[in-house]
Design a binder for these strands. Structure first.
Lengths: 127, 127
DNA sequence: GCTGTATATACCTTGACACGTATATGCTCT
DNA sequence: AGAGCATATACGTGTCAAGGTATATACAGC
């Protein structure tokens, strides 16, 4: 497990990171909000910490985890050349942005289908 | 293989994408430049295509692959909340940027180190 | 000390995926 | 049609990481 990309490939880890954007959280809080077993949380936090995504401070028995910018900045840096590429193709880009606006909104956990009365089963999650 | 993050977790796929930033390439060109066996290239291209990162056009026996913005924009969109987080912690951020500068080894587009209130970002605009 | 709570780690199993090799498909030209 | 090139796919294999369960460490309060 070396690259930052492999780290954020894991959905649970991304969820943890997204959770930490608002404020720092203890393991137990993460565990409850994300509804995942405690060992899972701890293990992912370990990975995230060793990869430089988060850091922790001790508060009695609790450990408070907070974001660290480094590693995500690395991802951001990798995207830079592509952003330049996109700005060169702004016209075609605009269309995609419009379509993404819908996707980003509907991509919540309990996705609701706004089109029609029948709820369709969307593709199963991992496993 | 569902999420865009799992797609770009693979180093070879990232290499292919980076290669396509400059211009479209045929499978054989990718194969030679990246020095990877042809079936490997084809398979990764298949994954990238099905995930919306690239598209291909036919040129006789060759297939020309080029970038498509969609999916990388999805990655970019996920990073947005974190960028906001960083701008809220600009001071700590600056240190990291400085350290990254050495690692990334930028040419001469030197960022100036400004110590003072009311800072404004000079790169990485937030949309 | 003991008990309960909070977090970390060890062990095992399972499944996914990347790779290599071989082969198939498809196109061009003679 | 056949040869040769360019690309795609099928199959078998090994590796590695994620999940689950159980247990270990650490701290607080009594």
């Amino acid at each position: 497990m070396e690259s930052v990309f492999e780290i954020i490939a894991e959905p649970n880890r991304r969820a943890i990171l997204s959770l930490l954007v608002s404020s720092q959280q203890s393991v137990g809080e993460i565990e409850r909000q994300l509804r995942m077993p405690q060992p899972t949380v701890s293990k992912h936090l370990r990975v995230l910490r060793e990869a430089g995504f988060v850091e922790s401070t001790v508060d009695a028995q609790r450990r408070l985890y907070r974001l660290k910018p480094e590693s995500l900045l690395e991802v951001d840096a990798w995207l830079a050349p592509f952003r330049r590429f996109w700005s060169a193709h702004v016209d075609a880009l605009e269309r995609h942005l419009d379509r993404m606006e819908q996707v980003t909104q509907t991509k919540k956990k309990a996705r609701r289908r706004r089109r029609g009365p029948n709820r369709k089963r969307d593709k199963g999650e991992t496993k």
